[in-house]
C-alpha cells in the first residue's frame, strides 16, 4: 500500500513539474542560453556514440536479414526490412536508450547534488523557480535534439546496412539497389511516426531524470541511488511506452 502511494506521489510530482515548467514557456527567451548549453551537452556530444551504435545496428540487421531471407530468395527485401525497422522502431528506441544512459544519468546526478548541497534551496530563496531555471531548459533541449539525433541515427543505420549488403559475399547487393529497396515502402507518415516516438521518449526520459534528481534527499550515497533509479525508470518507460505509442499510431 505504501509502495503504491509512493508511486502515485512520484508520478503526480512528475506531472506537476512538467506542468509548472511549461507554464513558464512564455519566458523561454530568457532561458535560451541555458537551453542551447543543454542541447550541446545532451545532443551534440551524443553524436559520436549515436553514430557508431546506429551503424552497427544497421549492419547487424542487414546481416541477419541476409541469413534469414537467403533461403527464400528474397534478398531484395533486405533494404526494405532494414529501412523500415530503423525508422519505425530501432532508431527512436535506441537513441532514447542512449539518451537515458548518457544524458538522463548526468542530469539526475547534477540536479540531485544541487538538491543535496542546498543549491536548489538557494534558488528557491532567491525566488528563481527550479522548474524554469533547471527543468525547462533541459526539456526544451531534449525536444530539439531527439528528432535530430534519431534522424541521424536512422540514416547512419541505413548506411551500415548498405555497407554489409555491398561487402558481405553471400548478400552482394549494390548500394543503389539497396537504397532503392529502402525507399520503396517508406512514407513521410512512417518517418513522422518515428520522430514523434523519439520526441515522446526524449521528453519522458528527461522529465524522469529531472524529477528523480530534484526529489533526492540525503547525501552522496543517495545521489548514486538517484542516478540508478533514473536510468532504470527511463528504460522501463521507453520500452513500455513504445508498445502503447506504436498501438496508438497504428505502426
Amino acid at each position: 500500500m505504501n509502495r503504491i502511494s509512493t508511486i502515485f506521489d512520484w508520478l503526480g510530482g512528475a506531472v506537476v513539474m512538467a506542468f509548472r515548467a511549461f507554464r513558464m514557456l512564455p519566458e523561454a527567451p530568457r532561458i535560451m542560453k541555458r537551453t542551447i548549453e543543454q542541447a550541446l551537452h545532451g545532443g551534440y556530444l551524443s553524436l559520436p556514440i549515436v553514430s557508431i551504435l546506429s551503424f552497427f545496428i544497421g549492419a547487424v540487421l542487414a546481416l541477419q536479414a541476409g541469413y534469414a531471407l537467403q533461403d527464400f530468395g528474397a534478398k531484395q527485401l533486405i533494404g526494405t526490412l532494414v529501412g523500415e525497422a530503423l525508422v519505425r522502431e530501432l532508431g527512436p528506441v535506441f537513441v532514447a536508450i542512449l539518451v537515458a544512459g548518457r544524458v538522463a544519468s548526468a542530469v539526475t546526478a547534477e540536479l540531485a547534488s544541487m538538491r543535496v548541497y542546498q543549491e536548489v534551496d538557494a534558488l528557491v530563496t532567491m525566488n528563481i523557480p527550479p522548474e524554469r531555471f533547471l527543468v525547462l531548459p533541459r526539456l526544451l533541449a531534449a525536444l530539439c535534439y531527439m528528432p535530430v539525433l534519431t534522424m541521424i541515427g536512422i540514416i547512419i543505420g541505413w548506411i551500415g546496412g548498405a555497407v554489409v549488403c555491398n561487402y558481405v559475399d553471400f548478400i552482394g547487393i549494390a548500394p543503389a539497389e539497396y537504397f532503392q529497396s529502402v525507399k520503396q515502402y517508406l512514407t513521410t507518415t512512417k518517418l513522422l511516426h518515428g520522430l514523434i516516438k523519439a520526441e515522446i521518449f526524449g521528453f519522458v526520459v528527461i522529465l524522469i531524470a529531472c524529477n528523480t534528481g530534484l526529489r533526492t534527499r540525503g547525501g552522496p550515497r543517495e545521489i548514486g541511488f538517484a542516478v540508478t533509479d533514473s536510468v532504470v525508470y527511463s528504460l522501463m518507460a521507453i520500452l513500455s511506452l513504445d508498445f502503447f505509442i506504436t498501438k496508438a499510431l497504428g505502426g
Binding site: 547534477e110 547534488s113 544541487m114 548541497y117 542546498q118 543549491e119 534551496d121 538557494a122 530563496t125 532567491m126 525566488n127
Partner: peptide
Amino acid sequence: TRDRFAIALVFQAGALFNS
C-alpha cells in the same frame, strides 16, 4: 511574499552554485 520583501538566507554550508 519573497518577491515583495526579498528574503535572503546565508546557508551554513554556503550553498553556492557549483557550476
